[in-house]
Amino acid sequence: MNTIFTTIIALSAIGVISAVLLYIIAQKFRIVEDPRIDEIENVLPKANCGGCGYPGCRNFAEACIKSDNFEIMFCPVGGTSCMSQVAKILGKESAIKEPMVAVIRCNGSRQNRAQKNIYDSAETCRLVHNLFRGESGCQYGCLRLGDCVQSCKFNAMYMDKETGLPVVIEDRCVYCGACVKSCPRKIIELRKKGPRGMRVFVSCINKEKGSVARLNCTAACIACGQCFKICPHNAITIENNLAYISFEKCKLCRKCFSVCPTKAIQEVHFPAKAQKEPLSEIKSS
């Protein structure tokens, strides 16, 4: 019996002493944090994607509180609804941003760009870009090894086996910009998503002369200037043998799409039946 009692007493004593020590230490080394950090972190998506420019959601929350200029803080994943919640916590006005989407500006599929070399090493775009112009001979185009797909934390991209090009699943894309950073050739651009996802863009970034570019790729922009001439909104610029459509100015009239001889200009999500009268369709939306 005696043994049992001594054991119980000894163990309880150790327990009590440890508890007191723990309490003292916890009090002494306590870090006082703004409780709003936790609150904001709770309404954030907690994907830690870095799309906002901060390493993680908590860092973003801290930055939101410290920031003098709250309008520039934006979480692309949570979007406007999330930011309005954050604004409510801080008692500030939130900025309303238009939704964007990652756009792949290369149409050099296996069909459009023939293979000219065999690359034989680790399958990463970064390495190929460091080594040479790429298997297809186009020194601007997609390397088809999927660094962007690897970088996407939202499973919003996959490699199309047929074309060899990456595809963005637009419903899942939160325009965090990770793929833009991961692409060594800077092919991917964040563009305005457009009404019901409708948008027009130049799917090529080849800066070579038209004849040279065509040698490697049938879908290259050859800077013929037809889109530039026809655009009624001055949305198209041509620089370094390459056309670019400004998504701020584009009114989705699709005139450029119909004149592009190489189909380097692409349009997506336009309803099939409305193709004859595109303008009225836009107005009604």
Binding site: S121, A122, R126, L127, N130, L131
Partner: peptide
């Protein structure tokens, strides 16, 4: 393993 490939990239 393609050690030199990656090292060259990292070094650059």
């Amino acid at each position: 393993r393609p050690l030199t490939d990656y090292i060259r990239l990292g070094k650059n």
